[in-house]
Amino acid sequence: MRPVSVTVFCVVVGATAALAAEQQFNLPQGPGRELVYGNCQTCHDLQSVLDSAGIRRGAWNALLDNMKGYGLRISADQRAKILDYLGTYLGPNPPAAAAATGAAATGAADGAQVFADICAACHQAKGEGQPGDFPPLAGNPDLFLATDFPATVVLNGLTGAIDVAGDSLDQTMPAFDFLSDDEIAAVIKYVRASWGNDKLRPAGFADLTAGEVAARRAKAMTPEEVHAYRGSLEKK
């Protein structure tokens, strides 16, 4: 119960701090991982999950029940996937991590796989997005604003109001700089070629290379600067 008169709003400061504090936890690769990232950080950061690594599946199951009491609301299907993930990859005998994609190591990044593992949680399986929350990638002209623009967003995040294909959004996308240069090049190539996006492609527009992603990575920007960069490109 909060006395109304003393409530202080400082959303922006809080959100920025939270972003800084949340971009750190490396869960092992495996199906369902994205659901943990997507659902378990509303109330606590993922150190709670990592520090619990090694407990039995039954203990994870009970823990998910506890979390329901603490406010976790997920579908039965999501719950089953999360439990499978936690019980397997954060259980007492996790499979060797070599079973994970390993794309970064081999240099043969699979753009479709990266998209399904990382991007689809928000942008949805066919790039359709969620109105008001996550911009669509299907039919999104931002993809061709500049050769390096999508990579700039992936590497640094983006925050601020944008209009995309008739939808107005004002959300924050965090940086996905943990992806390798190969993975980022591959996933952007995949998105630019999927769901009819090739029709938006200006003549002679070249895909960017992993080397170009690396060069872009060397020039770090804040999510606000990326927003400004987008504005400057739109004006052109």
Partner: peptide
Amino acid sequence: FGKLAGAAGLALGVSP
């Protein structure tokens, strides 16, 4: 917000 912020881990270690 958590969903967005959360997806950004520091995924370097794919080691045993």
